[in-house]
Design a protein around this nucleic acid. Structure first.
Lengths: 189, 189
DNA sequence: ACCTGAACACCGTTCAAGT
DNA sequence: ACCTGAACACCGTTCAAGT
């Protein structure tokens, strides 16, 4: 015989209930007390699994980031980059603004799976040294800002600005290397 | 003789007290009740001037946007654009994230003084038709996203990505006009 | 030692009672 | 009609009392 539902409470079940509550009733109704009600346990039970509300929200952020499918590497670096950023947009856009503000850095900052894939793409394309990281940071900032502003400025075309940024970044590939870099191969020969 | 301080309550004084509270103790402590305490009035007095908390926050947003000094138009369009975006960054960066998320759209969306200045700059530079608006939207998205991500990714250089975006936008100026536009002057002659 | 819920110190907002 | 604060329906979190 199974134990009562309250004793089967896990972080996983709490996180799922939290997302359910978010989708049905929005960010404002997501409270520790309401979550307890939702799971049919006494109000303080959630504190057995999460130290405080902030730790619960951290778990929601991680869950969103982990759940995201990172597109595979096919096509030119521009096509690949576009796909990676489209995936980021699809992940960020449906979230309530309060959660999105915490997911965006986790998704786009160095260290995420998405950033890892982006660095591979950009490095393979020929962005050397700091350039790959800087290029990805710029693309991430553009995408995060676009998602943040889009609801108040819906006419804006994501693709237009992205293409201009990609144009500008592409210029870095064909430009001659900076003076210091020119002499480095001779030193390591 | 002056009336008691409580009867001299104005929207202006309430907004000033709210900013004082924000600066000293942060976003979390900004409550309608605490604001009443701060102003030494009965707790519900603020509701005489603002229908609810949301309307008060709207007033804070407007105040920030109105207070901003929009830089004058000197230098090349790239220099001017850089100055406008630097002013936006200086306005957004010191704000608590919750307020920044509401100020950013108000500051960067069409209709603001900043956007007006930007449209003049870009139009004078030769961005025709929808291009000026699209260029500004892209620059605004990049800037808003940069400010949002900078605290978790402090190594990122604002100027690098901005220069690449400006490079890409500059390409729109020298490129030939699109086919449809080529024939328009003939039709209106 | 662990489980539990009462209690603390707050919220935003409504509304009935007093003047 | 206006002023006032008690009250409602919540919060996140602590902690004392019970098992």
């Amino acid at each position: 015989m199974e134990a009562a539902s309250s004793s089967r409470l896990t972080r996983q079940r709490i996180v799922e209930a939290a997302f359910g509550l978010l989708e049905r009733e929005g960010w404002e109704t997501l409270s520790m007390r309401r979550l307890g009600q939702e799971l049919d346990v006494w109000p303080m039970a959630v504190y057995r699994h999460f130290r405080d509300k902030d730790e619960l929200v951290d778990a929601l952020v991680s869950h969103v980031v982990q759940d995201m499918t990172v597109p595979g590497a096919r096509g030119s670096w521009r096509v690949q980059t576009r796909k990676l950023l489209a995936a980021a947009r699809r992940t960020l856009e449906p979230l309530p603004a309060e959660l999105r503000a915490r997911v965006a850095p986790a998704l786009l900052a160095p260290g995420s799976r998405l950033s890892g894939a982006a660095m591979e793409t950009l490095t393979s394309a020929g962005f050397r040294g700091q350039r790959a990281g800087r290029a990805w940071a710029a693309l991430g900032a553009y995408t995060a800002g676009y998602v943040e502003l889009a609801s108040t400025n819906p006419k804006v075309q994501f693709e237009y600005g992205l293409d201009r940024l990609l144009d500008g970044l592409e210029g870095e590939l064909t430009e001659p290397a900076q003076p210091r870099e020119l002499y480095e191969p001779a030193q390591t020969r």
